[in-house]
Design a protein around this nucleic acid. Structure first.
Lengths: 344, 344
DNA sequence: TCAAAAGTGTTATCCTTACACCCATGT
DNA sequence: ACATGGGTGTAAGGATAACACTTTTGA
């Protein structure tokens, strides 16, 4: 029960800051400007004497490195696997990272949220550059069938023997769950009744499997078996374990959106219903049914009309809406329970 | 971007280990045997050179301190607020804690899961001793109206002035959300349309409010304003911030149960449907509708009959069931989506 | 025969999904 | 006039919530 600081521990606070840039979900990255450098998320070492709380420390790093002041933030997970995100020297101080998601508006109209000047090169990067297989907005992503699933199949075949039997799910089952039953195609293993569909929330499970299979560059960099790793890997790499944190952030947002009104954190003060739908689709990574979406939003009492309209969209003028802050107090779970209407 | 271990950081791994003991949800505690000592959760300092991963470190602590070998575990949150759970000396090393939930069977029939002898005094404690207001199985808990809500009301009245206005929810709204609209009784603030019901998942929000209001002993111990703290406080205290970790664990379990088959981790190999219902009710803290529960479990394909029956329940013999492990592979979200049928 | 608990059947209601159609603007 | 996107109505299917009722044991 008594504690002693046996061994030095380093703790990084890392933020996946999300905004919408030209209709696409984007994250704030630092570095990566030089040809070979990998982009990173805003991050820094937690210093208990300077930072009153973890959250304040995080906000400080983001503001210092990019000038953005965060609104909504949420802790995701504390990652601590050795071997990953390691320096190679086993005597080096062990570094854990606490990952956060933050939401912000890329550009606030009028009042700029960015006060301080950024002290580092930063930029917005579309998050689907790091996870091309997660964007189903214009149909099933080609990478899936062209490279990703074949790679996974090869991995399963290659490593079938050294798999310990036990209560845990087999690799084959995990792949099927994460990527949908179609991933396993002809080789359905028996009692597969209702073929598992693609679940947009399983972003992290998918990334982890690709990592284990050696199909992302980070796996090779961390010194894992790289038997079949393509030279370029799938999706862009990020520094350290930041892509894993981003995967966790996307998964969390996609889930949370359905029962809490978090989308509005990335929306401007007023917007059309189509704008809102596009934002939700951008985050969820799939298309939604227009009419049902509108009724959904309406019934949930999430928005109210401002009275104004805009012609900016072309066609019939669209009514402008604003977020109704009261919903949070009125309804316990005010979100957009999307259902599965993939319209395509 | 370069890191340096500026200041010493201590990291505690802490586990809320849950099992069912005589039909009640219980957690594994250590210490607290002596009259004045507060019970604690199994816990210990993370030592990167000894523990390959955070999870392995945690499992080690639990096994060393209680002899229990954990099955399912899940990371909850990393707590790092200074002022709480602090030593008072500002130069003492800052200690963060990573909280986990674990599930286990209190007594495994036949094969004992407990191999090693416990090196510390440990015991199972019903979790509702720490959160009496969370148990609605035999109706609305009396503490709520007798002590808890009056205490909160007093706090709201007392601190109404020094509340900063802003986008965040007001204290009054937070109380209403966490404890249901009935908490605010006559003083409904206007647009309160559908009166917020009690949401069994908001365990942490409720505990945090009680802490802020100085109504739990820990708040006084941590040096917060104790203007109206009753001598004994509400519910039993735990060491450090362990009760907060337990609150997080309960909240997570109550939520997770609805979309993942985690209940079965605390069930014996075979059980009757009533056993299962009682287990779910014990965790959720409320009664469920019998007939609908059975159909729910059936439709979800979560269990299958063993063929055997038992007379142990009294009355007509009950069929024995076992968990169908296949569901996990078959259905993406195999859980008990409870709905709100509070019967009583 | 009665109490106790297991187990089955049925109905009203709401929500989800899908489809068809109308409206207001610019070109 | 027509293309474009905004906006509304309604019907079919399924899930939920609530009800009443039958079955099998032990005392």
């Amino acid at each position: 029960m008594s504690r002693s600081a046996d061994q030095a521990i380093g703790l990084d606070l890392t933020a996946a800051v999300v905004a919408l840039v030209e209709g696409h979900p984007a994250i704030l990255t630092v570095g990566g400007a030089e040809p070979q450098a990998e982009p990173a998320l805003p991050s820094g070492p937690f210093a208990p004497l300077e930072h009153r709380t973890l959250e304040l420390g995080l906000r400080g790093f983001v503001e210092a490195q990019t000038g953005f002041r965060l609104g909504y933030i949420e802790q995701l997970y504390t990652f601590g696997d050795r071997g990953r995100h390691a320096t190679g020297l086993s005597s080096a101080p062990h570094v854990l990272s606490i990952g956060y998601v933050g939401l912000t508006r890329a550009v606030e109209e009028g009042v700029p949220e960015r006060d301080a000047a950024p002290r580092t090169a930063w930029s917005w990067q579309g998050w689907y550059r790091y996870f091309p297989w997660e964007d189903w907005r214009s149909g099933r992503p080609p990478v899936l069938d062209e490279r990703l699933l074949p790679g996974l199949q090869a991995w399963l075949a290659r490593d079938a023997r050294d798999e310990p039997p036990g209560r845990a799910l087999s690799r084959r089952e995990r792949v099927s769950l994460a990527f949908g039953a179609s991933a396993m195609d002809a080789s359905l293993n028996g009692a597969q009744r209702d073929d598992t569909p693609w679940d947009e929330e399983r972003v992290l499970e998918r990334y982890e499997l690709l990592y284990e299979a050696g199909l992302v560059v980070e796996a090779v960099r961390d010194g894992r078996d790289a038997a079949a790793t393509p030279a370029d890997g799938l999706g862009r790499p990020m520094a350290l374990d930041h892509r894993r944190i981003l995967a966790t952030a996307i998964a969390r947002l996609r889930g949370k959106m359905k029962y809490r009104p978090v989308v509005f954190e990335v929306m401007p003060a007023t917007f059309t219903l189509t704008d809102l739908q596009l934002a939700v689709e951008a985050i969820a990574g799939r298309r939604l049914h227009k009419q049902n979406f509108r009724r959904l939003v309406d019934r949930a009492g999430l928005v109210e009309q401002t009275g104004a309209t805009t012609l900016a969209t072309g066609g019939r003028p669209a009514a402008l809406y604003r977020f109704r802050r009261d919903v949070v107090a009125e309804r316990p779970a005010a979100g957009l329970r999307l259902g599965q209407p993939v319209v395509r």
